[in-house]
Design a protein around this nucleic acid. Structure first.
Lengths: 190, 190
DNA sequence: TCCGTACAATTTGGCCCCGAACGATACCCT
DNA sequence: AGGGTATCGTTCGGGGCCAAATTGTACGGA
């Protein structure tokens, strides 16, 4: 493809630094750009639509999940929102304090908690989502519908690869050794 | 393209919920998948390569930037790493305490601070980067080189769109009104 | 009935993250 | 020379974030 944009300055420098080293360039570029795009998109949305609605990105995603799926158990919400259960506890507490979300015990299983939107929450999403979607369209403005589909499809394959083979891969890398402790977070007791 | 993967369960539910509403589906899907992919990739790398090197994602990105660009002013490092100056202060302090990074005042401009890798830091990157790159290749394993290029190119266009027109767009959305305060973070004094 | 195991959400600890406020340095202009 | 103004890095406040530890409920089997 002759009209292709030239690679960015940073990518050129990286290549220079890695001169002799065998590097998977295409894969490096795709990961770097996934992350850059995610940051850019999040930042744009937080500083436009979400800011005027007084929502953080994560709070919005959680509301969105409950809105779309209806009343749900917290573990499903966390899973679908892409955050840990522990994080969800805090976020949903904040949303409950703002009367956007309701929490209710499961009628037959006392371990479960169900989250649902209040009327106020529903109303907020009806008001905010269209604006949010318009900004999604803005950030993707340089891509045709067909290109959007193709990029989204490629990204879905990345997500699937990690979801389906990530754990197995991490275990293989350890090769029997027990995993190193995480740098941050609570230390194992033993 | 007939063989295209069917859309995910969540995407179908979203469509149902939004029944009557005019929604930019392709753009919505591309944003959602950018974010999902970014989380998945980060999580995989943090729990494999970075964990055994005792680095967080952000710490690694900062080291990478300094490694590739050489000794640099902090503002350039923050910009390139995609984090704020304030965040970089904390991260670089941690890295300095671990003797991976050196900080030095600029010889002629007293406001600037220069960051560079120590020998230990260089050695770490030479050891860790190849493994990191191998995992980048793993997460992109379902994409051909050509598909990687195409996805990376699409994402670059998203980043560029936000970088080049984002601020202007946010101003236009405000339409003269002063911006709402951020939900979290230090409150304006006035 | 009581015990062990399984699995739920919450708590906790350490770090990341942004952007407003701040203090210090640089530099232009008169 | 000296007073604005711009720009640097740092500090600070309010959250977000993960995973280990914890607490509490469920349930099958002895």
């Amino acid at each position: 493809m002759p009209g292709q944009r030239s690679i960015t300055e940073a990518e050129k420098l990286a290549e220079a630094k890695l001169g002799g080293m065998p590097v998977r360039h295409e894969q490096m570029a795709v990961v770097a750009n996934i992350y850059r795009a995610a940051s850019a998109v999040r930042q744009h949305l937080e500083n436009s639509v979400l800011r005027e609605a007084d929502l953080t990105w994560t709070a919005f995603v959680v509301l969105w999940v409950i809105w779309v799926w209806g009343e749900s158990e917290t573990r499903h919400v966390a899973e679908e929102a892409g955050i840990s259960k522990g994080t969800l506890t805090g976020v949903s507490r904040t949303l409950e304090a703002r009367h956007l979300v309701r929490r209710a015990g499961h009628p037959s299983d006392g371990r479960l908690v169900l989250l649902s939107l209040t009327d106020e929450g529903e109303e907020l999403m009806r008001r905010v989502f269209p604006k949010f979607n318009e900004e999604e369209a803005f950030v993707a403005g340089q891509l045709s519908d067909e290109e959007c589909r193709s990029v989204a499809d490629g990204l879905r394959r990345v997500v699937l690869q990690v979801e389906e083979h990530g754990e197995e891969r991490r275990l293989a890398l350890l090769d029997g050794a027990e995993p190193a402790p995480r740098r941050s977070g609570r230390r194992p007791k033993a």
